[in-house]
Design a protein around this nucleic acid. Sequence first.
DNA 1: TTTATATTTAACCTATTAGTTAATTAACCG
DNA 2: CGGTTAATTAACTAATAGGTTAAATATAAA
Lengths: 119, 119
Amino acid sequence: MNQDQLSLTFAALGDPTRRAILVRLSKGEASVSELAKPFMSEMSAPAITKHLKVLEKAGLITKGREAQWRPCKLNGEPLKEMSDWLEHYRQYWEESFDRLDEYLKTMTKKKGKKNVRKK
Amino acid sequence: MNQDQLSLTFAALGDPTRRAILVRLSKGEASVSELAKPFMSEMSAPAITKHLKVLEKAGLITKGREAQWRPCKLNGEPLKEMSDWLEHYRQYWEESFDRLDEYLKTMTKKKGKKNVRKK
DNA sequence: TTTATATTTAACCTATTAGTTAATTAACCG
DNA sequence: CGGTTAATTAACTAATAGGTTAAATATAAA
């Protein structure tokens, strides 16, 4: 697997079950079986254990010990890293997009697609 | 594969090569071979074609046609969707985190871990 | 000590990912 | 036309993801 932090985090969130688990944890700590409950009909307990392991490796959750339970809790730091990475691209879904697009059009017209061709 | 938009987008960014391609595209359109150049020593052209296909399916890029070139350009909308999803969790990497943490501690002390156990 | 609950591990299966090389398609250029 | 460049497709491979069932482990409770 891609071992860099950002890759682990993005990949972990690339699964709807794991995102749902995070949503649940954002409402408070929960044991593994509590987290598994909404998915009982769709998958087994070991499947949930594996999903939690992925989230743990990405640093998105931590697991404690309470008797036979393993209370999980959300850790937001990796989410912040993602958010910071995305921030770079904010312009691409906001107003300044139009300006950039205009600039590129000018470039391509000017000297035979200078920025598209190379060699 | 997980076909929902958000999963496709997160999964697409879970690879450092694809993130690097997006970074490059944020500086302007580029043909496939221009995008491939920084990775020539690490992987072949078809590998890049495949990465671009993943980005395309996630809606993160669009490919045009200019003679034999296929100028790629960044599309930020899916990034916005991700950013919006992450926004839910902003509190978990900011000040209010402490307040919530405190609240959970109180709950667990109060009545024998009422919020951790169930059954 | 036995039993029940919570969770994990082991072993296995199948589909997908991420890469490869070789061949193909498409468009330009002399 | 014949050659060159750009990009894709095909066919293949190895590793990983995501699931399964059955067995093991840990703790509590009767």
